[in-house]
Design a protein around this nucleic acid. Structure first.
Lengths: 257, 257
DNA sequence: AACGCTGTTGCGATAAACGCAACAGAAAGG
DNA sequence: CCTTTCTGTTGCGTTTATCGCAACAGCGTT
């Protein structure tokens, strides 16, 4: 978390830092927040009132504490429509598909699962054709594992719900404990590999994409089982590399940390 | 869209206006945006670079145009976890439930449907008990209609998908044309009433909640058919009033138009 | 090649944000 | 019950950061 840098607006930067502070804590008081960010109480107060005027934060009239407002949700919906992620990922997906000769897909979390946001099909005759827009449940497929392995444990528990997990094929992981162990391996390797969790004889390799420290999607290369396993090492390296590139892109070219 | 006002940070306010400009357009160039907001090119440029440094916008390296960045998505997830809306709605829900003697519910859009975010059950013996966290498809129930009637037509078409709509009871609206007509009525009346779309002999009255001009959820009063219809007029008035109050709250107490 | 556009940087004047301090209200503690 | 110590809020002089003009460079078009 560095200094604003040259040619940037300091006041705005501080305001954005205030907003980002609501990542670790849902509620902030003025003094509390000022201490956290090393600001004067008066400054924090002014920033918060400005943010409140535009709906980015909301002050509880009773407790005088602030929470994130509705404007961020509205903007998030606009961002989803606008397809920022898709635009940034497109060149990487085409590169992956060309280099490896298999279909490359971008998935994003959506509701209680994940959605196929963008797909570049392989050129060969034997190719996996993804349905863009399709939503799949969280616990199925390498793409899902690469995303939800990096979700907070509470969120995962909530998303998976109380009921038993649906089984799509022989290799679908339906046992919560087993899924948790799988997630631990995915977190360690930063890659997830699945064999025929949805479609038989199909293998996919997925890597997580992050932004601002949180997972925002996953990159997948998917194709016929023997094709992918044949070149599994390079596939893993390429997918992971592409995902890391995308993460760097999303974080603005690498100014922070 | 008024002036910043007293005791607020002007630079931050301008930066937030820049962010909000991405509501009507997904991509902005520097000059374009400067004209739109009446700013100097240099100012717009500085604001955009600071926003980019923190990941709120993302510059396409080729076209030099800006889109919303990943930070807004991250914040939106934090806002959802934090339950800003729930906190603001709680007192209104309890008031509704007490005054009308029926259960009051807050619903929010979630994935391709809507989720029960908060519920205050009626105190009587014959009460509807909502399952908090449950996700229902967009086309079912007054709560859903009150939300998705105010979605852009393109989004609605995408959400409802290509396939036929699932039927839950005799009164479920499954015909797209019929649904569109229903939505028109809901937009006109700012209220939606449904009889037994999910559960037989249950009637619900729902009104939309807005923030920054976009629908962010719906308030519902739900109970046994004859109980609700008996006092339908006051119920409609109360639900609509509560929804409008919540909208005002979310917009920061009424600074903006 | 000249033009119109774009995005980007420099720099001085000025207006705005800073941050100290003082104030009020609430909660906590004796 | 009064004191203490937080809290959030406002005023105001100083300074600093922002403004906005202008000049510059990179493209695409006419």
């Amino acid at each position: 978390m560095g200094e604003p840098g040259r040619g940037t607006a300091k006041t705005l930067d501080r305001g954005l830092l205030v907003l980002l502070a609501f990542q670790h804590r849902t509620e902030w008081g003025v003094s509390e927040l000022a201490r956290e960010l090393g600001l004067d109480k008066a400054v924090a107060h002014r920033l918060l009132t400005t943010l409140a005027h535009r709906g980015f934060v909301l002050a509880d009239p009773d407790t005088r504490r602030y929470r994130l407002g509705a404007a961020v949700g509205v903007l998030a919906r606009a961002a989803e429509r606008g397809g920022t992620l898709e635009a940034a990922a497109r060149p990487l997906l085409t590169a992956l598909a060309r280099e490896l000769g298999e279909s490359a897909i971008l998935n994003v979390p959506h509701g209680a699962g994940y959605r196929t946001a963008l797909a570049v099909d392989a050129t060969g005759p034997m190719r996996y054709s993804a349905i863009v827009g399709e939503t799949l449940p969280a616990h199925g497929g390498a793409a899902g594992h690469a995303i939800f392995a990096f979700y907070p444990d509470d969120d995962v528990r909530r998303l998976l719900g109380a009921g038993p997990l649906e089984r799509f094929s022989d290799t679908t992981v339906t046992d919560p404990d087993e899924l948790r162990a799988l997630y631990a391996r995915v977190r360690r390797d930063r890659v997830s590999i699945s064999h025929g969790e949805y479609d038989l004889n199909v293998t996919s390799v997925a890597a997580p994409v992050f932004a601002a420290g949180e997972v925002v999607g996953s990159l997948v290369v998917i194709g016929p089982h023997h094709n992918v396993t044949e070149k599994i090492d390079t596939t893993i390296a390429r997918v992971r590399g592409a995902a890391e590139s995308l993460t760097r892109l999303l974080d603005g070219g690498g100014a922070e940390e």
